[in-house]
C-alpha cells in the first residue's frame, strides 16, 4: 500500500525538482516524461520588470502536479520560518520542504535549527517535510516536533553519489516502519532511486540528476521507470540475500555424465 504524505497519496514515488533545467520547455518535457507525484518549487526575489516568477508559475499550473515549496538557501530558523510563510501564501499550500542549511561544503542540514523551525511551523499549521540526515535521534526529535514525514539525505545535495550510508538508511527504515520516508538529495542515476525504493523508502526526491543530464528529458523518463520498478519490486517482497550460492536450476534428474562430480553433489559438498 502506498504511503500517505499528510493524508495524501502521491501518483508516483518520484518527487522532481524544477531547478537548473536548460530551458522552461525542457523542464516541461522532463515533467511530462517522468510523471512525478510532486514538483518542488522555491521563492526568489522578483523584479517588477522581468516577471520571471509569473511565467514559471503559469508553467507549473499548466503541468497540474502538486507542488512542494522549499526553504532552500535558508541558514537560520527565522529565515526558514519567514520563507515558509511566504511560500504558503504564494503557492497556496501548507506543505513545506524545510531546509535549514548548516554547512556550506556539504550543504548538511543544521539539525538543531531544523528541529526548532519544524516545531514552530507545525504549530502554525504547516505540514513539514524536513530535509535531515539519517541520524535516528534527530529523526525522533523531528517526529516529536510534529513532522509526519522524514527526508534523509542520500548524499550531499547535487553530488550524485547515491545512497552514501546504506546501513544508516536501512536502520532508519527499520526504526520507523510506519513513517513515510523520502531519500532527498544525492541521487545521481536511476539505479540509486530504484535502490532507495527497494530498501522500503516511500519516495525519492531528485533534481540535479535530471536537470544536469546531457538529455534531461530522456533521463527524466529513465527516473520515472526506475521509480516504477523500485516501487513494484518492493511490493513484490525481494528475496533475502545470502552468502553462498544456491543452484537455481534443479539438480534432481540431471544426467550423470561424470561420476566424480555427481558423487560430490550428492554428498552435499559440491
Amino acid at each position: 500500500m502506498a504511503a500517505l504524505f499528510y493524508g495524501q497519496e502521491l501518483s508516483s514515488a518520484l518527487m522532481l525538482g524544477t531547478a537548473q533545467y536548460p530551458s522552461p520547455e525542457i523542464l516541461r518535457d522532463a515533467v511530462l516524461a517522468a510523471q512525478p507525484g510532486v514538483l518542488t518549487v522555491s521563492l526568489r526575489r522578483e523584479s517588477a520588470g522581468e516577471r520571471a516568477g509569473q511565467a514559471f508559475w503559469s508553467l507549473v499550473q499548466e503541468l497540474g502536479v502538486p507542488v512542494l515549496p522549499n526553504t532552500a538557501g535558508c541558514h537560520t530558523v527565522r529565515e526558514a520560518v519567514t520563507t515558509a510563510h511566504m511560500a504558503r501564501e504564494v503557492f497556496g499550500t501548507d506543505w513545506i520542504k524545510l531546509e535549514v542549511i548548516g554547512e556550506l561544503d556539504t550543504l548538511q542540514p543544521d539539525v538543531f535549527g531544523l528541529v526548532e523551525a519544524a516545531r514552530i511551523l507545525t504549530e502554525e499549521g504547516f505540514k513539514v517535510f524536513p530535509y535531515t540526515t539519517e541520524d535516528l535521534v534527530v529523526a525522533e526529535r523531528l517526529l516529536a516536533a510534529g513532522c509526519e514525514v522524514l527526508m534523509p539525505w542520500g548524499a550531499p545535495i547535487g553530488s550524485g553519489k547515491g545512497l552514501n550510508n546504506l546501513f544508516g538508511l536501512r536502520a532508519m527504515r527499520a526504526h520507523f516502519p510506519s513513517v513515510p520516508l523520502v531519500v532527498d538529495a544525492g541521487i545521481g542515476v536511476p539505479s540509486h532511486a530504484a535502490q532507495a525504493l527497494e530498501l522500503g523508502y516511500d519516495a525519492v526526491l531528485i533534481n540535479t540528476a535530471v536537470a544536469k543530464a546531457g538529455d534531461p528529458v530522456a533521463m527524466a523518463r529513465a527516473f520515472g521507470l526506475a521509480v516504477q520498478a523500485g516501487t513494484l519490486a518492493r511490493q513484490a517482497d525481494p528475496m533475502e540475500a545470502r552468502d553462498m550460492a544456491a543452484p537455481s536450476t534443479p539438480v534432481a534428474g540431471k544426467a550423470f555424465l561424470d561420476e566424480r562430480i555427481t558423487a560430490k553433489i550428492l554428498s552435499g559438498c559440491g
Binding site: 524544477t18 531547478a19 522555491s42 521563492l43 526575489r45 522578483e46 516577471r51 520571471a52 532552500a72 540535479t208
Partner: peptide, 8 residues
C-alpha cells in the same frame, strides 16, 4: 518581494 521560482 518574492515570487515563485524553480527549486529542488
Amino acid at each position: 518581494i518574492v515570487a515563485p521560482m524553480q527549486g529542488g
